[in-house]
Amino acid sequence: MKPATIFNRWLGFAFTRPEPGSANWYFRRDKLAVVCLFAILFMIFVALAAPILTPYPEQGLGDPNLGEKFLPPSVAHPFGTDDLGRDVLARVMFGARSSLIASFAIVSVAMVFGSVLGAIAGYFGGWIDELIMRITDIFLAFPPLLLAITIATVLEPSLRNSILAVAVTWWPWYTRIVRAQAVTIRERNYVKAARSIGVNDATIIRRHILPNVLGPVLVQATLDLGSALLTIAGLSFLGLGIQPPTADWGVMVSDGREYVQSGRWWIGLFPGLAIFITTLSFNLLGDGVQTATDPRIRSV
């Protein structure tokens, strides 16, 4: 499919009246989820337009402004200023960039890698399945954040490496979901029909297996965006993610921790609030999508 066609379809999906009974129709009845979708779009807009939206773009990028240290929230600085006198609002806006990029990147990498492995394991079965799934078991044996911390520790701390560290721990979940689906789809008659026609295995996986697991996988991916954001924020909080002076929410909360006893609450509060609201939006959106696509749990 051409990119233009896909784009047109998405436009159509977003702006035409959904057919009653379609997942889109159910989704739109969930007002909270729709609000969250717009909240996320707003966050993306803020991240992109941060240099235009804030009067202090240099501070957002990291330049210190030592003359205005520790100012509490005011009209000029709605979120106050931090230990280097930088506008916290500007830092929060610029911080949206790494958080959003990281959560989408983690989920995409894990989804593509995990799904392909899962489809191969489920379709072929036998020793291939056994091998892939035992490797998956080993990765799943680590508590999620722990392995990411371990990997991020030995790598040079950076955004790319922290994304990599989390993605390495994330793909097995998709492998499991897709394998379970692929095992049932393999027994469907349309796969048998394709095999009896003589279609080769790679084409069967691409044409018959993957498109039919796409639904549940995308739902899972939406549900995972929030957890991915929390995980990456946790790594940053530990100093294992993106490095100063680039703005990052996790790092900012970590900085704010030092000022609890002196009562300078605004330094840690606002970036944490940004993490919370974005994660909450992702999770409510994911929950809405899941409910809309599952006939067993949605209500008419």
């Binding site: 469907r188 008659n189 349309y190 048998k192 029909a193 394709a194 009896s196 026609i197 003589g198 279609v199 084409t203 044409r207 018959h208 498109p211 039919n212 796409l214």
Partner: peptide
């Protein structure tokens, strides 16, 4: 071969055209 339940023997993500064309394309 023609299978028992037509809805499980047709890939729900493919159009009728692509379903019938699959053997020819192969």
């Amino acid at each position: 071969m023609v299978f028992q339940n037509p809805f499980t023997s047709l890939n729900p993500r493919m159009r009728v055209f692509d379903i019938v064309a699959e053997p020819l394309r192969t």
